[in-house]
Write a protein that binds this DNA or RNA. Structure first.
Ligand SMILES: [Zn+2]
Length: 106
DNA sequence: ATTGCCGGGGC
DNA sequence: GCCCCGGCAAT
C-alpha cells in the first residue's frame, strides 16, 4: 500500500468528535425543555438479578462500527469544545469558518 | 442535541 | 483572499 490507512476517509471521518459543553449539562438543559423528568420512585433499592448467572453485557455482537483504533468522537477537544460558542473568537480561524481545525491537527 | 467538516455562497 | 452558514455525518 503506497498509503497506509493514515489518510483514509474512515479515519479522518472518525477523527472527529468530543464533548465538553456538558455531555450532561445538556441533559440538565434537556430535562428542562421537554417535560420535566419524573422525580418519582421514592424507593427503588431492590436487589436485582432475578436470574442468576447467564447473560453479560455482550450476549451478541451485531455489528457495531467497524472497530478501529480511531479516537471516537468525544475524546478530542478542539477549539470549539475547549472554548465554547461563547468564546468563538478564541478558536482558530478554520474553526471559526467551520473548516478543518488547523490548530489541533487531530 | 452536539461537535466537526465539506461544500457552497457573499464580498 | 477573507468571511460565514446549510446541511451532513458521527456521537
Ligand atoms: Zn481549531
Amino acid at each position: 500500500m503506497a498509503r497506509p490507512f493514515h489518510e483514509d476517509p474512515d479515519y479522518q471521518r472518525l477523527l472527529v468528535g468530543n464533548m465538553r459543553q456538558s455531555l450532561l449539562a445538556q441533559a440538565a438543559a434537556n430535562a428542562g425543555i421537554g417535560g420535566t423528568m419524573t422525580p418519582q420512585s421514592p424507593h427503588k433499592l431492590l436487589k436485582l438479578s432475578p436470574s442468576p448467572g447467564i447473560s453479560m453485557v455482550h450476549p451478541l455482537s451485531p455489528a457495531k462500527a467497524p472497530v478501529s483504533p480511531r479516537r471516537a468522537r468525544g475524546e478530542n477537544k478542539k477549539c470549539r469544545k475547549v472554548y465554547g460558542m461563547e468564546h468563538r473568537e478564541q478558536w482558530c480561524t478554520q474553526c471559526k469558518w467551520k473548516k478543518a481545525c488547523s490548530r489541533f491537527g487531530d
